[in-house]
Simulated assay, not measured.
Amino acid sequence: MIAAARRDAAAADLSKICTFEVADVQHGFTPSLATITQYDKVFSNAAMHWILKASTSGPFFDSVHAALKPSGQFVFEMGGMGNVAEMRSTLLGVLGRRVGMAQARAADPWFFPDESWMRARLEASGFAVERLEREWRPTRADEGGIEGWVRLMGKQFFDVVPVAEEREECVREVCEVLETVCRSPGGGDWIGYVRLRAVARKV
């Protein structure tokens, strides 16, 4: 993605004003670009629920705050409380029965907070919350269907099962349950996405 962004910037003659880098933001980050000390905006789309945990989120939000200029905006969308609840419950149930619930929970890669948690966390890091909302947004499964979603998004759950044949049994069992839960009488398979989005300003 960085390589593609650099190509696109060069093609649009924006290489002198657009720069790109890869950084690990899970434990806080400091922009390494010598020409930029602070940013006007920080934007995140569908990434934060993969990298945050309640107990270790402070450095992430603090570093976003530090990276912004005064009055700079932090705009994001992520999974919110209740996101893909049917998928998550089924994955935890199937895997928990085989490896134990503690190990299944430890393999769960997602963090889906509600508005109260997010507001408190943003304000603790020095942001003024201008907009914060959670939306239920059922989404039709793409051409990969339920199985494609389960194999891609649920991979970290299945990684805790050491035997390949048993992993496949788990995938089949999860899909059997979800095909019942997600199949719409009106056609297609639907997944219960819940989005949490916010606009916050550095104060």
Rank of each mutant, 00 (worst) to 15 (best):
L92G: 00
G82Q: 01
F61H: 15
E168Q: 11
R134C: 11
V181M: 05
S89T: 08
E179W: 08
R131A: 07
R97W: 05
F157W: 14
M101P: 11
F158Q: 06
E133D: 13
L91K: 09
K69I: 12
R121T: 12
G79C: 02
E179D: 10
R167N: 06
E123V: 00
E165D: 15
M87D: 06
F61S: 11
S184H: 13
G93N: 15
D62F: 00
R167K: 10
V99T: 12
G126L: 01
V84N: 08
R140L: 06
T180E: 09
R151Q: 05
V171M: 02
A66R: 15
F74V: 05
A141F: 10
G93D: 15
G72P: 04
L95W: 03
V161H: 02
R98H: 09
W149A: 03
E86M: 02
V129K: 08
E179M: 07
L178W: 13
G100K: 07
D159R: 14
P113Y: 00
R140V: 06
E147A: 03
A164N: 13
F157H: 13
E176F: 02
E165W: 14
A120V: 13
R88T: 05
W149E: 04
M118G: 07
I146M: 07
G186D: 11
A120N: 14
T56K: 11
K69D: 06
G126S: 02
P113H: 01
A66Q: 14
R172K: 13
D62S: 09
A141T: 10
F127W: 13
N83G: 05
E169I: 08
S125W: 02
V181C: 02
M78Q: 14
E173F: 01
Q103D: 14
T180M: 05
M118N: 07
A104N: 05
G126F: 02
G188H: 11
W117P: 10
E143A: 14
S89H: 08
V161L: 13
D62C: 03
G148K: 08
V150C: 04
V150Y: 11
S71L: 03
